[in-house]
Design a protein around this nucleic acid. Structure first.
Lengths: 248, 248
DNA sequence: TGTACATCAGTGAACGCGCGTTCACTGATGTAC
DNA sequence: TGTACATCAGTGAACGCGCGTTCACTGATGTAC
């Protein structure tokens, strides 16, 4: 599905006419799928072109007809992971009552946690320790913001609807100038119409959600928190409230 | 420094009498030190016994006189990292005015961030993606709580001093029963005298601090936040406030 | 103080493993006339 | 519709690399008498 061709594509991407072209599309997809499964079990460091080739019953060199290098395969998997997570968050968020901004926040947060639980290695791939020696190319930037954008839209909607709770006094303090500039730029890109102080708070809350998920997934709560569900729901709700989001 | 002997130690650990014993202590320390440097540059996945041996000018097999396996070496490095971070947090926190609980929180938070910035790979080793195939043994549990305990003590002191700000109404809601139980157990261990709702809030705030550090370190804020210092200080302060901590 | 034995450090070769990537080559599929 | 040539998929061997760990062995250090 992802453009992953070592050769250059022509214009006609739609329907592959020849048997060769169809086979190429299919095998490329299968390579990606098998690689995804290997990633899920072995982790990014254990992803090996040779192992993928073995599972597909082809020689290791044959894979190079479809993938230029191991790094390119990793990039495709990263993009896929970002997209998959983004889609899950969007879908969950879309399932909640539009006017219930806190509910939307909780739904989005739960979606992150659920997705991470289902795909721990893929989550680690994009939100964990960077893969050593791997430099993410530019193609990964756009998909990377998809989940973030879904979170941002909730606050944007709440502000637009005039439904944002008034911030506590502590948050009305002026931001330091450099932070103000960063927040203003962010407001332009992802948070149109949202005051900078709220933007900062939203970034923090969103970071905290991912922090919670990472800590739970990477085992930092071992032996301390036993009911992960209750803790997460309670906490994610509180974080949504800290942004000023409210139920319908 | 760490007990890392393949053979069993006797009682007399203090001063190694013989030249052999002194050489053993020294070489063990050098192995740990070189391994630490390799970890810092290559990351956990790239840590290799052979490379360490090479740098020390000895054969790879000789290392096995001092270290039982690669995993044991990793364990020693993990313990060292936890201890080092814990010490940094303790020291920073101890440098602030005892009555300025918010200041202590900020100092501790900054210490985490600074330490992580100085030792990104060591931070990743303990708070990033778990090393695949490695199972942390029991010895790592105690050092792991050191930094956490330093954070907890701030809230404990604030409660004991009667200096905790009254929580906003949203946080006075009763906790769900299972979460209440977890929080009560935590209160026993790390937060004596602290109400369970505040314990939960403290865990969240502390998680958020680590989430911020991880996101910054692992590159999630690339192209969005340029003044990391300002953002972090602002945010860490807000998180401390969310627990109820106040300046002197 | 001196000898006999036990302990330990360190060596070098080897086992067995897996990896990414390249290259010359065969044989099937596609294309232009 | 049929042939001649170009394109592409896939093979198998090879290069060069690095790893953790084991093992039989030498030679130095320590210990007990």
């Amino acid at each position: 599905l992802t453009a992953l061709s070592p050769a250059a594509d022509d214009g006609a991407v739609d329907a592959p006419r020849t048997a060769r072209a169809r086979a190429r599309v299919e095998l490329t997809a299968r390579i990606l799928e098998v690689a995804g499964r290997h990633l899920a079990t072995e982790g990014a460091a254990g992803l090996s072109l040779r192992a993928v080739a073995r599972e597909l019953g082809m020689s290791s060199s044959a894979v190079y007809r479809y993938v230029a290098s191991r790094d390119e395969l990793l990039t495709a998997l990263i993009i896929q992971a970002y997209d998959d997570l983004g889609e899950a968050v969007e879908a969950a968020e879309a399932g909640a009552d539009r006017a219930d901004h806190l509910g939307r926040w909780l739904a989005a947060s739960r979606a992150v946690r659920a997705w991470a639980g289902r795909h721990p290695q893929r989550y680690a791939l994009v939100y964990g320790t960077p893969v050593p020696g791997y430099e993410a190319p530019a193609d990964t930037i756009a998909p990377a913001t998809r989940a973030t954008a879904a979170f941002a839209s909730i606050t944007v909607d709440a502000v637009a609807a005039g439904a944002l709770a008034p911030p506590p006094e502590a948050h009305t303090d002026a931001l330091p100038p450099t932070l103000e500039a960063d927040a203003a730029a962010l407001a332009d890109q992802l948070f149109p119409g949202v005051p900078t102080a709220v933007v900062v708070q939203a970034v923090v809350a969103w970071t905290a959600v991912f922090g919670l998920v990472s800590f739970e997934l990477f085992g930092q709560y071992r032996n301390t928190l036993h009911d992960g569900d209750a803790f997460f729901d309670h906490t994610a709700t509180a974080l949504g409230r800290s942004v000023g989001l409210r139920p319908a």
